[in-house]
Each structure stands twice: as structure tokens, then as C-alpha cells.
Simulated scan of single mutants.
Amino acid sequence: MSLEELLPRNQQKYSNIIMLRSSLVASTLFIALLVPFFGLVMALVGSLLTMLVTYILPCACFLAILKKKVAWHQIAACSFIIVVGVCCACVGTYSSLSRIIQNYT
């Protein structure tokens, strides 16, 4: 969508947007076929960043913004979610790295 917004207003037609999206899909396919461990690299990025963005950062920001106004059970719940998120990110990252190393050697 950010690439679509870069198009001038008079060029933001349905056909141009379809061509842009199709070229993005084709380039992604080309890169996936070119990079030998594309799926494993995407698993590595996903396991690390998904946990960070969906579990760890929201709870950390909630606690940082409302540090004086949160109750103890909210702190405990957020801390639990952060710990589980960090553990899952570590396990996923380790698993992805070990599979990449296994396929590389």
C-alpha cells in the first residue's frame, strides 16, 4: 500500500494498482526461487519479529505508559505475557537458526 500511495493521484487507477501488486508478487516469487533457504529465513524473521511486535512490545509499552496507574494483577499479567513471548521468540529463533545451519552444512 505504501508503494500505491507513491503513485501520483492521476495514476492511481485500478489497472495500475493491479500491475503494481502483480509485479510485487512476481518479484517475491523470483527472490524466493533465487534464495535457497527463503522459507527458513522467513521463519527466522517471523519467529523473532512476530513475538516482539504482537506480545512483547504492546505489554512493555502499556506498562511504560501507565506505570503508576496499573494494578498489580495487570503488571503480573503483562509480565507473564512478556516472559512467555521472550521464551517463544528464543525457541523459534533457535529452531530456525538450527534448521538453517543444518541445511547449510
Rank of each mutant, 00 (worst) to 15 (best):
R21V: 04
L52A: 12
S23Y: 10
I81H: 02
P58L: 09
T28H: 03
T93R: 01
C78R: 00
F38M: 07
M51E: 11
T105D: 06
I56V: 15
S95M: 07
L29E: 05
L49I: 14
T50C: 08
I100T: 05
L44W: 11
L6P: 00
L63H: 02
S2P: 00
S27H: 11
Y14M: 07
A71S: 15
L3K: 04
F37Q: 09
S98R: 06
I31C: 00
N10D: 14
A26M: 06
F30W: 13
E4H: 09
S15W: 09
K68P: 03
I81E: 11
S15I: 13
C87Q: 06
H73L: 10
K13W: 02
N10A: 13
I100F: 08
L48C: 03
S95K: 03
A89P: 07
L6C: 05
E4T: 12
Y104P: 03
S22G: 10
K67D: 05
I101V: 13
S23N: 12
R99S: 14
G46N: 14
L34G: 02
I56R: 05
S22D: 13
T93G: 08
L20Q: 05
M1E: 10
S27F: 07
A60C: 08
P8A: 07
F37L: 07
G92Q: 13
I31E: 05
I56D: 01
L49G: 13
C59Y: 08
K68I: 02
L6I: 03
P36I: 03
I56F: 15
W72K: 12
I101K: 04
L48A: 13
A76E: 10
F80L: 14
N10Y: 12
M19L: 10
I82A: 04
C90G: 13
L48F: 15
A76H: 08
F37C: 01
Q11C: 11
V84N: 07
V91D: 05
S47H: 07
K67S: 14
